[in-house]
Design a protein around this nucleic acid. Structure first.
Lengths: 363, 363
DNA sequence: GTTAGCACTCGGCTCGCTTGAGTGCTAAAA
DNA sequence: TTTTAGCACTCAAGCGAGCCGAGTGCTAAC
């Protein structure tokens, strides 16, 4: 009974045929006919039987026919079933593993850089478009402030967030300030603002700050405005795309409309950031075409894997491409990459005693 | 004689015909025939005469014929002559000016953000792909260091460059350090390293730093390594692209190869950063197809305007698109945008005493 | 339930035809 | 010498007919 459920009532033969069709279609992109299945698979039956099965699979919604006298192609439901139940585990070649190790190890840097490198690598290894994401973080606070005095009309405000990100703002006060005032400002901010969320900074707190700043209380107003901006920026999320040109090799994107849709989505970022925000934090997520509510994704698939540190999603890497994506390979690649990245950001100390710099995160 | 020279020996009529052809071609993208010129222009001669002139213009290299029985299209030389001598000044609509003002003023922030907003705007207003560039800076030094102590195994190094950019690195020393040691490190770095270029940091200097750090001399090695990395990153330049999808509306990019070439170039960034680095610092630069040594640009044109502050190029905005670009409009738009940006970054003090300016922050 | 056979469908390709925009050339006019 | 009118020529693009072949659905027999 469980097996029946998991297989959604598909006989073993139907599953084998469906898998063969998806595999073949992923490879050439053309419709797959009964004759091809007959000779590629070893199921002891004739083409006519296969045709019957295919007709039933179509009726069940797993296959589609582009036109009456063509073979079948998988429907979105077909891909979904394939990804959930039929897919074979792809084993990365030693060469691929070596590439991951080499590039990521050499590109040690802040999380930003690691993610960008990883998205590049994902694109290279899979031949689809890679994306690197820094997700929206809603409940972020600032854990530490610092100020750098440059001249009486110019100082820099530095903020370290609870996720470890460092942000800076240049400030140009109208009335000249002293180095001491700027230093005091950092102390006051650390005492009054840090570890508080935006909506926990109340008027009494601001008044206390102003009183502690004494003659330089005028600084508080402008600084607080910048802090709000800064928190808002953190809230936005970021996304980098690499390997757009790889899309062009897939005939599905010679349809200008599909290409335009996808490029528009990549441009926008909003839609994809939302999808990633909604996704599971643990697994690799697969979004197939119109499964998402994002209409523009209709003819494409998105696969992504969040990078988790200390229970927080600090980033994600992914791949975007045509529906007939080589899911097996993409899943394996993203798993491999994310494993490496997690290792990197969890190794706090390094062998060489040098720097190790897990970018945006907190310890 | 001077006029002759400036017009490269083209009679007034030839210039009028050439301009009419370029204008028409920019608009429809098709070859332009003698008949069209006859009725669009008021030059008192017949189609046959125009044909003769066109034949001569072709011989001189300003026009090309896609095939024997088609009209003419401008050659790269033709575009160049058009841009240099024939172009009419485009006057921005009040609506366009309002858009620039509104969006840029509302997007006050660090230079990064301004540039990105400007490139978006350039793309919107012109209907081509916009780019925002932070150029390579070769002779950059660090003007100020700061450190932020987080815990005995984790501190942050902050560096402010001579161009005002702020960069940060997380460091995780193997042996625990004290807050005082980290603070001392900042002082030592400010005394010994700041204002020096990378190749001016010699062994004696490093030894002096180690001696001043006392028991914590072990920190110096790892920090110096990060500083080198940081300087290397500054050296790289950055580029953001917006509105790639706009390219698809131009039939020249339905040629998959051309599109692939251009997308590849946009991906790479190297080529365009080089072009911008070579360009004039003052004017709007126009690079028409194979004029540049970048082969992949063969079927596209790049127009960009550097943003200069205190004699240094701190950024650039530009537009990339097909050869038959509406140069008049693009030139006007970029001039307008860069004017606004310059105003913004030169206003050191703001009415509200708020922020402004140059910063590229790192997390 | 499976198979063999057959008629049918339909996209994609090729071929030839027509159309029309646009040219170059020549010979006459200015 | 320059301009013009006229004419023959060229060639891409669009259209439709026709063929091909892969692949189907259906039916009748196993």
């Amino acid at each position: 009974m469980e097996v029946e459920l998991e297989n959604r009532g598909l006989s073993k033969r139907k599953r084998q045929i469906l898998k063969a069709i998806v595999d073949a279609h992923i490879q050439d992109g053309g419709p797959v006919g009964s004759k091809y299945i007959l000779q590629s698979q070893q199921l002891g039956c004739s083409a006519a039987t296969i045709r019957n099965e295919m007709a039933e699979l179509e009726e069940m919604g797993y296959l589609e026919q582009p036109h009456a006298s063509a073979g079948r192609i998988p429907s979105e439901l077909g891909y979904r079933f394939y990804v959930d139940s039929l897919i074979e585990h792809y084993v990365m070649t030693t060469n691929e593993i070596a590439q991951i190790n080499h590039l990521l190890r050499s590109k040690m840097g802040e999380l930003d850089q690691i993610l960008t490198a990883a998205s590049n690598l994902a694109s290279n290894l899979t031949n689809y478009t890679g994306i690197a994401i820094k997700p929206r973080v809603s409940a972020v606070s600032i854990s530490k402030f610092e100020t750098i005095y440059l001249d009486p009309n110019h100082y820099i405000l530095i903020a370290v967030t609870s996720t470890g990100a460092v942000k800076s703002k240049h400030l140009h006060p109208i009335t000249p300030v002293s180095q001491d005032a700027v230093a005091l400002l950092a102390d006051v901010l650390n005492d009054c603002v840090s570890t508080r969320l935006a909506d926990q900074i109340t008027l009494p707190i601001i008044m206390e700050m102003e009183s502690r700043m004494g003659v330089d209380s005028g600084l508080v107003g402008s600084v607080m405005k910048e802090i709000y901006n800064l928190l808002a920026e953190l809230d936005e999320g970021e996304m980098k795309v690499s390997g757009i040109n790889r899309l062009l090799q897939y005939p599905e994107y010679s349809n200008v409309e599909h290409l335009q849709d996808l490029l528009g989505t990549l441009e926008n970022k909003e839609d994809i950031l939302n999808l990633v925000a909604q996704g599971s934090n643990e697994d690799v997520n697969v979004v197939i075409g119109s499964e998402s509510r994002v209409k523009v994704m209709n003819n494409s698939a998105l696969v992504f894997k969040p990078i988790v540190k200390d229970g927080h999603t600090v980033g994600a890497i992914g791949v975007i491409g045509p529906l007939r994506m080589d899911y097996a390979k993409v899943l394996a690649t993203l798993e491999g990459l994310s494993g490496n990245i997690s290792d990197m950001i969890h190794t706090n100390k390094q062998l060489n005693g040098g720097t190790r710099d897990a970018g945006n995160e907190k310890d």
